[in-house]
Simulated scan of single mutants.
Amino acid sequence: MLEFRIEKITDLPRIDLSPLLLESKEEGFRFIVRLVNDYKNGTNTFNKRGEGLYGVFNEDDDLIAIGGINIDPYSNDPQIGRLRRFYVSKAYRRKGVGRFLVNKILFDARRTFEEIVLHTDTETGALFYTSLGFKKSSGDPNTSHYLKLKI
């Protein structure tokens, strides 16, 4: 059985992102590059009320997944959070790592947000998020899925 630990990341430059960065670029995803650049220039450091950046580490302390939540920048409602910069290393997909990470983010988000939104443009991503209870969204080009946290 594989063991993982999840940590809230408060100082991204201290984390070795290079394996995830390289792998994500090879897959054609640019959001890890944006994560690094936005963090570096202060545009998004996941430090506002309810926000957070999380990493999943394996037994060797290697970062194998990352994801965060922000106040949704496309909404005027501070009760809406946006799942962002979510990536799981290919070697750890379909092993529960992504589910583990999203569930931790949602658990913490319940204290601040009423709804979580996200945007994915892959079928695999859409299937993953619907398996976690997210509903498909329509009408908003910035949101593909949403989940109500408080009823």
Rank of each mutant, 00 (worst) to 15 (best):
H119P: 01
R49V: 14
N70V: 15
L22G: 00
R84E: 14
I6H: 01
I15R: 06
L147C: 12
L17F: 13
S144H: 00
G133I: 11
E114C: 11
F31C: 01
I71G: 04
G68L: 09
T43W: 00
M1A: 12
E114K: 15
D61R: 07
K150E: 13
F107A: 14
D121T: 09
V56P: 01
E59V: 09
F134K: 06
R111W: 09
E3L: 08
Y54T: 07
I9F: 14
R84K: 15
H145R: 10
V97G: 05
Q79M: 07
I66C: 06
K40E: 04
I64Q: 10
H145G: 06
Y129N: 07
R93M: 03
L12R: 02
G50Y: 10
L53A: 13
V33H: 01
G55K: 03
I105N: 02
I71Q: 08
T120V: 01
A109F: 03
L20I: 11
L2D: 10
L132F: 03
G52R: 02
D121W: 01
A91H: 11
M1H: 13
L118R: 03
K90I: 10
L101G: 06
Y92S: 06
I80Q: 03
G55E: 06
E23C: 10
R82K: 13
I69F: 02
K148I: 14
A65E: 11
V56S: 10
A109G: 11
A65V: 12
Y54C: 03
P19T: 08
E7C: 11
E51M: 12
K90S: 11
K40I: 01
I80V: 15
L17E: 02
I105E: 07
R111Q: 12
S137F: 09
D62P: 02
L106T: 13
E27I: 00
P141N: 03
D108L: 14
M1N: 01
N37Q: 14
K90C: 04
L12D: 03
V117Q: 04
L20Y: 06
I116A: 11
S89W: 07
I66T: 12
N103H: 14
E23P: 07
G98R: 12
E123S: 10
S24L: 09
T130R: 14
F57W: 09
K48I: 03
I64N: 05
Y54D: 03
F4S: 13
E23G: 09
G28E: 05
P141G: 00
F57Q: 03
G55V: 01
V97L: 07
Y87Q: 08
G133P: 00
D11H: 12
L20V: 13
L22S: 01
A109N: 07
G139L: 11
S24N: 06
G96M: 09
R85E: 10
P78Q: 10
F107V: 00
S137T: 08
L17N: 04
G42V: 09
D77G: 00
K150M: 12
G67S: 05
E115H: 00
L20N: 05
G125P: 06
I69S: 08
N103Y: 14
D61I: 02
L12Y: 00
G139R: 08
F57H: 07
F107E: 15
R84I: 06
T45D: 04
H119T: 02
Y87V: 05
R99W: 03
D62H: 14
S137N: 14
P13V: 08
G125D: 08
D11L: 08
L2H: 12
R30K: 13
I6L: 15
L2I: 14
I66N: 00
E27M: 11
K150F: 12
F29R: 01
D61L: 12
